[in-house]
């Protein structure tokens, strides 16, 4: 059963996450806490002309939240803020309501096993809640 949740792709992202670090040229930043466990994330994005040209994150969290952040940042890098908003809506519907995932987010299907663990949905959503704020910030700058 564990391999259902802790698939290789998740372990790989968790152990060597993409886009990890800070971003000196960030125009938008969001800090999110998961109050139930003390996990936190800082998401930094450089938004130019409505496009997320660069994105980085720093986090203190479990394999699920780190892998989710790694895959999320890979998916949104280079996309427009509106594209990111669409992907956020798709991921949220996937993880909370079991909807089909936008094909762009194919890799995030690996988090499917989280859906049967309500306590872990918050872990998977942490980076995406940060993205929500970054989107609001990016729209403000458009």
């Amino acid at each position: 059963m564990s391999h259902d949740l802790y698939r290789e792709v998740i372990l790989a992202h968790a152990q060597s996450p993409y886009n990890h670090g800070t971003l000196p040229d960030a125009t938008c930043h969001s800090h999110q806490d998961n109050p139930t466990c003390g996990d936190e994330i800082d998401l930094y994005a450089e938004v130019r002309d409505g496009r997320i040209v660069e994105v980085r994150f720093e986090s203190q969290g479990c394999a699920i939240s780190t892998a989710s952040a790694s895959m999320m940042t890979e998916a949104i890098k280079g996309r427009t803020v509106e594209d990111a908003a669409r992907l956020l809506a798709s991921f949220r519907a996937f993880i909370t309501a079991g909807d089909l995932l936008d094909p762009t987010l194919e890799e995030l299907e690996a988090l499917e096993g989280v859906r049967r663990l309500p306590a872990r949905v918050k872990c998977a959503m942490l980076a995406w809640r940060a993205l929500e704020e970054v989107i609001a910030c990016g729209r403000g700058r458009a």
Partner: peptide, 25 residues
Amino acid sequence: IHAHDLSTLLDERGIAIRAGHHCAQ
């Protein structure tokens, strides 16, 4: 290994522990 991941893996074996800051941050 993060405590949450540990707790999920143990739960799959019927073992209930607590993971997190235990209300003592």
